[in-house]
Design a protein around this nucleic acid. Structure first.
Lengths: 185, 185
DNA sequence: ATAAACTTTCAGTAATTTCTGAAACTTCTG
DNA sequence: CAGAAGTTTCAGAAATTACTGAAAGTTTAT
């Protein structure tokens, strides 16, 4: 499992970025290694290639599985488990979005809902509640929107992205296009 | 600068979420406090309310300013500086997106570009480069798309979000709508 | 049922990140 | 220009997070 210089650079970088992406260095490295390696790779090989303990490797793989970025792959005739990416690049990116939404937005939405239930005790609180309400609505829009985009599926999403500034033009024509159907709000 | 129970809960929560949002606990708390407080607030008041050192407060405010989430506000006749949010909720959310993109995507794009310049040394590297290339293209699309959305401005973006599943329908009609103009790629 | 091959767990340690507070710095004011 | 009012910096301490490796657990083969 000797890593080529190119793979080494990429793996190191993904390690450094790991924490910004929501996991830690080791987890980032393991992910990169699994994605960039066409063959399935065993936990032991990962530990050797990255020079980390077997225990740490196990925990990292567990986390990557909880993010649904990596899955086990059984090689017939082999005793040990191998690991491969849980899908193509597009799928992986989607999973990262989704998981992060769960970790970064959902808990806040839930708290905001609770805080908005109680009647404000005074002026100050009323004002704060207004702000919290604004935040809640914004997060709700983002959540709904991102689910919407995921439902579009890869091809349509790609069309939409490639449309670029066309989106602006389209919006201007929206009312003529979908008369009366835009009553979502 | 006594915080009401409601504000305290919100501030504490934003503190806990802070690290997931790209900054640390204190920074998250300071941000929440500034946003939820209708009046401008001084660094000393922040330190007192959150029970943190004056030094830590100073660093936190500096970071929030580097994220362009908070700005100074000079009160005539007062010697000290006060702080207020750098815009409405929508603006702040946008800034967070933008800053995170800078920190989470841009460095990777840059590395990928470099790694894709060299000719692959062998089969293994060629395969890895293919994967890296896919990642690069995906990140590029995301970046371009998010810039596009920002250029739309708040109102249109909101229209688009509220459109919900209408987006799918619109895409189907796209070709009729914008004949020949969708040659963005 | 024993053993071999492999994986997971977790207590303790190491590395990293955040926080404090005292000292240095920067304005303003008289 | 002295000093009062305020801010920033930064070395060291505290808190948090990640990692190791040995022990416990699992599975398969005989």
């Amino acid at each position: 499992m000797k890593m080529t210089p190119l793979i080494t650079s990429a793996v190191m970088h993904f390690g450094e970025m790991g924490s910004r992406w929501g996991f830690n260095r080791t987890v980032g490295q393991i992910l990169a290694l699994i994605v960039l390696n066409e063959e399935p790779i065993s936990a032991q090989e990962i530990a050797d290639a990255l020079n980390i303990s077997r225990g740490n490797t196990s925990m990292g793989l567990k986390e990557l599985q909880s993010w649904r970025l990596v899955k086990q792959h059984h090689v017939p005739g082999e005793r040990k488990e191998f690991f491969i990416p849980a899908g193509d690049i597009w799928t992986l990116a989607n999973r990262v979005f989704e998981e992060r939404r769960k970790r970064e937005i959902d808990p806040t939405m839930s708290l905001l809902r609770d805080l908005l239930l109680d009647a404000p005790a005074n002026e100050k609180e009323a004002n704060a509640q207004d702000k919290l309400n604004e935040i809640h609505d914004l997060l709700e829009s983002i959540t709904a929107w991102s689910e919407e985009l995921q439902n579009l599926g890869p091809e349509k999403l790609n069309t939409l992205m490639k449309l670029g500034s066309g989106v602006g033009r389209m919006l201007e024509l929206k009312d003529k296009l979908l008369p009366g159907k835009n009553s979502v709000n």
